[in-house]
Design a protein around this nucleic acid. Structure first.
Lengths: 274, 274
DNA sequence: ACAGTTCTTCCACTCAGCGGAAGGCCGACG
DNA sequence: CGTCGGCCTTCCGCTGAGTGGAAGAACTGT
């Protein structure tokens, strides 16, 4: 850009993205000074960039002067394939799973070494749970995570096992050898289970959504309270949902928004008016 | 910025946001040239900015070379209050409504002169519908829209009626007088209905979620096929859900993420490991 | 009254960002 | 099998948009 002093090779774009990076689930609302500090920007620069972002509504300013992620950014994010394609196709199946179980239903993808939760459905009767839509959890302590890992290539598994495995409860599998054995069993059985490996008192059953080449695209899972768990009863509907989603995904090809047919007509109708 | 020629006062930030603006639901996947054209950027500039955005994963590049909205942007958008606060609190109530009706369940807020859909639940048995999470529809042709408008201040209503009212079906209310009367009836009855005003064959029932001052924060609604409609039977559970959400919102105060209690502990536990 | 925040505005310096040009790659058409 | 018209990518010299310091306003708690 320009500037008179201490300019490390950062571009304006990287600064803008750094501002977005300043927000996370533990810091969803920040003051201007917070943002400047967390993004390593001078207050002046933060002030100007945040001002522009706020005008576009990428950020919004609350009554207390603090900033949070804005409406437009939320809206833009929902145009991504994770939402318009994967979630759109999966949703009816997830609802079906919810109706059948009334428990927490999850849809997740693998991103790096974490399970990224694309959708989470839960009602009043479901067990309270740490996952959230847009959240991340370890692969080896969650049902969906283990389902994603088990069908991954050996290289990926090796790479994952090379890092230390977080032990979140006393039941978490933190030894590479035991995890490898568990993944083996999961693959042969067709679905993954966890028993209080993420949270004491909670268990889960999950299975992968595979593409035509057998690679795991995503995983569907259900989390229940330990006393209610019956994997044999839970697995069949989850397997069916995963199969259903996989088939619909394959059928949709690379259509970016499979559920959008006559909406095109609608937008035309709406446009004609204005 | 800088640059040697034709530089209208656009900032780098505005260009970056212009790139995001180039994507919409009808154009979720764009080539670099598409982006440059739609955002009025030179190909060179688009190339550089898109490159930076892709590196951060605000955008992602498909196998065919086209760009779409990336994972990180989706993730960032979900940190906004619409998702972490409103949706988080509303979700169990929406699920309850879905269980009770098995129809399309909507949660929407007003943004400008449109209803912005924050959440949409639908199963296999639900009527196919044009709404989508993150989508926008007119206020006067949708149940949630009318519910939002009916409790709005007179000024807002006047302002809305000043613009022409899109007539999307032959049953859409496009005369300001008739709409005003309808809103009056909605307010006195406590909930809104539509009868094929958005889509032929579909009807809806919706009611507002009001804050302590009686202002409409959001609206919950259900869309059903005309032959199945029984507003008197649908209204009570919807009213109850709206009331429940309103109470929980009021109880949460301005806690940015009311459903997040012991997750803080979890992230600490996860961090300790790495 | 004071020390500590916060946010905002002003300003002169300068390098990051700009777009044109040129070249490579692909598929379509004649 | 050239040629055209799309794409995308890299290179390069010019320059004004972006920079951070300084100064001060506003607000808070002590």
């Amino acid at each position: 850009m320009s500037g008179n002093t201490g300019d490390d090779g950062r571009s304006v774009t990287s600064r803008v993205l750094g501002i977005l990076d300043a927000f996370d689930i533990e810091h969803p609302r920040l003051t201007l000074s917070d943002i400047a500090r967390r993004a390593s920007l001078s207050l002046t620069t933060a002030h100007r960039l945040v001002g522009e972002l706020t005008e576009w509504r990428a950020l919004e300013r609350g009554e207390d002067g603090r900033y949070s992620i804005g409406l437009r950014l939320w809206e833009a994010g929902l145009l991504g394939p994770l939402h318009t394609r994967l979630r759109e196709i999966a949703m009816p199946f997830l609802q079906g799973l919810y109706e059948a179980t009334r428990e927490n239903v999850h849809l997740a993808v693998r991103d790096g070494n974490e399970a990224l939760y694309v959708e989470k459905l839960s009602g009043h009767r479901s067990v309270p749970i740490v996952s959230r839509t847009g959240g991340r959890l370890p692969l080896h302590t969650t049902g969906v995570g283990k389902a994603l890992l088990a069908w991954e290539t050996c290289d990926h598994v090796d790479q994952y096992l090379a890092h230390p495995l977080a032990r979140l409860t006393r039941y978490s599998i933190s030894e590479p050898g035991r995890l490898r054995k568990d993944l083996q069993r999961i693959r042969s059985r067709g679905y993954a289970t966890t028993q209080e490996e993420m949270t004491l008192g909670n268990c889960s059953v999950a299975c992968p959504i595979l593409d035509a080449e057998g690679r795991p695209i995503a995983a569907v899972g259900v989390v229940v309270h330990t006393v209610r768990v019956e994997p044999d009863r839970l697995a069949p509907p989850i397997l069916a949902a995963a199969k259903g989603i996989a088939d619909r995904l394959a059928a949709a090809g690379d259509d970016p928004y499979p559920g959008y047919v006559h909406d095109l007509d609608l937008t035309k109708r709406m446009r004609r008016r204005s």
